[in-house]
């Protein structure tokens, strides 16, 4: 099942890339196409952040991840590089769990 998602997903994203080289460039003049493709990453990424921070399955939960993500935001405000942001979130979350302060 995971393999199906990997292969179908890869075929889909590759087709998107190739499609751009095959379609007429005039599509770029369409403001609706440009706007929606510009908005999509913001909508999907912010939804992913929210869901993966505040839920497990279909249940809303507040646990150590929230502190980890908050620490990541602070790291971003301090212009930390990607790897540091991710590490800070993991370390803060792990420390909270190890200390028994949070699940």
């Amino acid at each position: 099942m995971i393999w199906a998602a990997v292969l179908i997903g890869a075929a889909g994203t590759y087709s998107e890339k190739l499609l751009g080289y095959l379609l007429p460039a005039s599509l770029l003049d369409n403001t609706t196409v440009r706007r929606i493709t510009g908005y999509l990453p913001i909508c999907l990424l912010s939804a992913l952040v929210a869901v993966q921070t505040f839920s497990t399955g279909t249940t809303l939960v507040i646990d150590a991840r929230v502190a980890g993500v908050a620490a990541a935001v602070i790291a971003l405000m301090l212009r930390a590089p990607f790897l540091v942001v991710v590490l800070v979130a993991a370390i803060v979350t792990a420390l909270l769990r190890a200390s028994g302060l949070s699940e």
């Binding site: 990453p41 993966q52 150590a64 980890g68």
Partner: peptide, 14 residues
């Protein structure tokens, strides 16, 4: 804390 690294990765991309 790798489960917190996932949303942190998304927020860094965002």
């Amino acid at each position: 804390g790798l489960d917190a690294a996932i949303p942190a990765g998304f927020i860094a991309l965002l």
